[in-house]
């Protein structure tokens, strides 16, 4: 197991970063074939925005359009089906609080090729910024550790975030990386065309359903 001793275990010790900026950093660190599952809300929109490049949009992304809380389960399913591929789940704090049991399921499966990234701004941003429980004392990384995900840490800053992503790409998981983010507006809005999203994603994974 990789050592995370140089990374903070408490939310208070993490720098507040920009959602689009760290999503872009994540996408830039990917080697191209990793699968990324975007939860709902601004996490999803910024994944869409950060995945657009000169050669088109990266195909191995799945964008939920509802089903709040299911980014981690969907990512776990992809990881089970394709154990050689690294799979990332991008989820907001409000969303993961709805499906905390999924963290213990990931831990119980000891899913090596899975990394969960939590974007935590302590608010339900898209509905008007109402406070979530992470802004009132709940610590998602602490919950993850207590759920059995030993390789869980807060990203202290952008550099530490990149280091954790590199670690997750290289070494066995499951991983959980907590990111404190700001309340910035997303850069773009995901196109809401579910059958196209699904078809693109499956083709990106080399599957035709």
């Amino acid at each position: 197991m990789a050592s995370l001793l140089n990374h903070p275990v408490s939310r208070d010790q993490a720098k507040v970063m920009n959602r689009f900026d760290i999503t872009k950093r994540l996408v830039d660190l990917l080697h191209q074939d990793e699968a990324v599952i975007g939860g709902i809300g601004y996490t999803n929109f910024d994944l869409w925005a950060a995945s657009s490049g000169p050669n088109g949009r990266r195909q191995q992304n799945f964008y939920m359009l509802g089903s709040m809380g299911l980014a981690v389960p969907i990512a776990l399913g992809v990881a089970l089906a394709q154990p050689v591929r690294k799979v990332f789940a991008l989820e907001g704090d409000g969303s993961i609080l709805m499906q905390l049991g999924s963290l213990s399921t990931v831990a119980a499966r000891a899913q090596k090729n899975l990394c969960v990234v939590i974007m935590d701004n302590g608010a339900y941003q898209i509905t008007g910024g109402q406070m979530t429980m992470t802004g009132q004392g709940a610590d998602v990384v602490g919950i993850a550790r207590a759920s059995g995900l030993a390789q869980s840490a807060w990203a202290a800053d952008e550099e530490a975030f990149a280091e954790l992503i590199r670690l997750a790409l290289k070494e066995d998981g499951p991983w959980l990386i907590g990111c404190r983010i700001d309340a910035g507006k997303p850069v773009d809005t995901t196109e809401r065309d579910p059958s196209r999203i699904r078809d693109n994603f499956m083709r990106g994974l080399g599957v035709k359903g």
Partner: peptide
């Protein structure tokens, strides 16, 4: 959700 992800991954 797990089954949906697995299906998209070919299982």
């Amino acid at each position: 959700g797990i089954n949906a992800g697995a299906w998209m991954g070919g299982t």
